[in-house]
């Protein structure tokens, strides 16, 4: 089954649809919507995914789950590098992020990268929130298709 291709095409079209329906000055709102869409999907996905899984030991263990299991099922590969400052900041680096590989290689279309990363950012945030971790997730690209997701844990 080639459903991963289906998802890739689908994601591209959602991005296009949201950006098109937003007026020029409201590009931000399209990003917010995409992020929120990802958030809800992440929440639901992780709930189904962790149904029969033992409890996570700690925050780092949860992060490893995101990097390995969740990433593999959603994007067909693991996160290449996970770093943390042990104070609530985690950086997930993917050298060949699936949703960017079809878009561009290199630096030419850098300005378009953020729109394809809003959904995955939301997905991470949603997954974490349903595992009991409130966070902020941002993405950063230096050359497509590599990208970094920065997770900032919100302590209450």
């Amino acid at each position: 089954m080639a459903d991963e291709v289906l998802f890739e095409f689908f994601h591209m079209e959602i991005v296009g649809q949201f950006l098109q329906s937003a007026r020029k000055d409201e590009k931000e709102s399209a990003f917010t919507k995409l992020e929120f869409l990802g958030y809800r999907v992440g929440q639901r996905l992780v709930e189904r995914f962790t149904k029969e899984v033992p409890r996570f030991k700690d925050e780092l263990d949860t992060m490893k789950f995101i990097c390995k299991d969740l990433w593999t099922s959603c994007y067909k590969k693991q996160i290449d590098n996970l770093r943390t400052n042990h104070q609530g900041v985690y950086v997930l680096q993917d050298n060949k992020f699936r949703l960017l590989t079809q878009i561009s290689e290199g630096k030419q279309y850098m300005e378009y990268a953020p729109q394809f990363l809003a959904f995955p950012c939301g997905l991470i945030r949603g997954a974490l929130s349903n595992l009991g971790i409130a966070s902020n997730v941002t993405a950063e690209v230096s050359a497509m298709p590599a990208c970094k997701f920065q997770i900032q844990i919100q302590r209450l």
């Binding site: 998802f7 995914f49 593999t72 099922s73």
Partner: peptide
């Protein structure tokens, strides 16, 4: 870890359905 992985194919289909 093997317990966790579930069926990746199923999850990726669910990713599409949920999205």
């Amino acid at each position: 870890q093997t317990v966790r992985s579930g069926d990746p194919r199923k999850v990726s289909a669910e990713l599409f359905t949920l999205t």
